[in-house]
């Protein structure tokens, strides 16, 4: 593995997105539109939005990170450029890391926009430290980006990739405590929730934002997310077979 290769790939991704102005504009604007729509649809009394906002922040980070990276990585394969890269001195780990670095910048920008818009424009209340919320969200993003790359290795085209959204993202919204507590679900579903990253993202972020807990206090959630991010990126590098174009 050569970090310079990963950085070269990340630089290329940055140039690609910035040169495609419409995509770049959409990446920046869509999170604001989505968050505004959610805000408009929620009753303003009883602090319901305050309660659900941390879960929404985590969900949107996973959703946008997954979508952005998954589709882009798939295009790398369908355009044949992945095949070309695989025949070069670049290793599979370089490619996964390059994608992680490259899309992290944009996913981070989205997260910052959502976070600040939610707190300062939509006036959602929180009690924890802003920087700790931010650090936690970064980890959620890394999970989402790795998940996007991993899942895209199973899709042969954009249509298939889009089908993975209801399969991978939507169940997490229902099973991971976004809408109702995990404890209220059946035992079987609670077990399923234990294997989904959004469960720990929602739990950790809620504890930081609503209860004012520190990153150390949500160490369990943090640890699971780190393990998930590392594990999924290792599996991705392994599954990214050299038969890239086949």
């Amino acid at each position: 593995m050569m970090p310079s290769h990963a950085l070269t790939i990340a630089g290329r991704i940055f140039n690609q997105v910035v040169r495609d102005r419409r995509t770049f504009a959409l990446i920046m604007i869509v999170p604001i539109v989505v968050m505004t729509l959610i805000w408009l649809s929620f009753p303003k009394e009883m602090g319901m939005l305050d309660y659900i906002a941390p879960a929404l922040l985590a969900t949107l980070a996973i959703f946008f990170g997954f979508l952005l990276t998954g589709i882009s990585f798939l295009r790398e394969r369908s355009q044949g450029t992945l095949e070309r890269l695989m025949a070069s001195p670049v290793s599979r780990s370089d490619i996964v890391l390059g994608y992680l670095f490259g899309f992290f910048i944009f996913a981070l920008a989205q997260t910052v926009i959502i976070l600040f818009y939610t707190i300062y424009v939509l006036d959602v209340h929180y009690t924890g430290d802003l920087w700790q919320i931010f650090v936690f969200q970064i980890l959620v993003l890394i999970c989402a980006i790795n998940l996007g790359i991993f899942i895209s290795t199973f899709a042969r085209n954009e249509f298939q990739m889009v089908q993975f959204i209801p399969l991978i993202i939507l169940p997490q919204v229902f099973l991971c405590g976004v809408l109702w507590p995990v404890e209220q679900m059946s035992t079987a579903l609670q077990w399923v929730a234990k294997f989904l990253p959004l469960t720990y993202a929602v739990d950790g972020l809620r504890e930081i934002m609503l209860q004012g807990k520190s990153l150390i206090e949500v160490g369990f959630d943090l640890g699971i997310l780190v393990a998930f991010a590392v594990g999924i990126s290792l599996i991705t590098a392994f599954t990214l077979k050299r038969s890239a174009g086949s």
């Binding site: 140039n15 690609q16 997105v17 040169r19 355009q79 044949g80 450029t81 095949e83 070069s88 174009g245």
Partner: peptide
């Protein structure tokens, strides 16, 4: 090794 695949295999945005 230099490899030119059957597809153009280029980054369209660049």
């Amino acid at each position: 090794i230099g490899y030119m695949p059957q597809q153009h295999s280029l980054y369209n945005e660049l």
